[in-house]
């Protein structure tokens, strides 16, 4: 199990790789929290694309980061949740927190954007809405 963390300004994406269980959840938690605190992160994305297994320790990990981001006045999103992971997360009711399945592209869009005027903001919003309609691709095939 490992985690790759990228930080750009107040945005952080943590790409989780491998299996999440009780044995390695603590290490992941510490790495992510450390990045969030030192980077003064306001928006945290957890990317599950490379996660091959997860039990309820993963739920604890997500709920803990959700609480942390709430305390910091920030937000948490989970990306690339599929199959077995989705089943376990739904079972825990994580879908009710409205943090699931946010397309990664949307974030990148926001990141690259210059400070925008009101008009541009409106445009960005409509682009975001469009992006949200796109079903999440797991395979990463070229369009």
């Amino acid at each position: 199990m490992s985690v790759q963390i990228e930080i750009a300004e107040e945005y952080c994406i943590a790409r989780l790789i491998g299996e999440i269980d009780h044995h390695n959840a603590k290490e992941l938690r510490e790495a992510i929290d450390n990045a969030v605190m030192t980077g003064q992160v306001q928006e945290l994305d957890l990317d599950f694309r490379e996660v091959s297994f997860m039990d309820s320790s993963g739920i604890g990990l997500v709920m803990g980061r959700y609480k942390l981001m709430q305390e910091l006045g920030g937000s948490l999103h989970l990306v690339n949740i599929a199959g077995h992971l989705k089943k376990v997360m739904m079972l825990a009711g994580l879908d009710r927190l409205a943090i699931l399945d946010k397309p990664e592209q949307r974030r990148r869009k926001v990141l690259s954007a210059e400070p925008a005027s009101e008009e541009e903001m409106a445009e960005t919003r409509s682009v975001e809405e469009e992006l949200e309609e796109i079903p999440l691709e797991i395979g990463g095939e070229e369009a």
């Binding site: 009780h22 959840a25 603590k26 938690r29 039990d55 309820s56 320790s57 739920i59 604890g60 990990l61 709920m63 803990g64 376990v88 079972l91 825990a92």
Partner: peptide, 14 residues
Amino acid sequence: EEERAGLGFAVMQS
């Protein structure tokens, strides 16, 4: 304190 979700049995049962 271990950040356990308390869902172990719920997960097993479902």
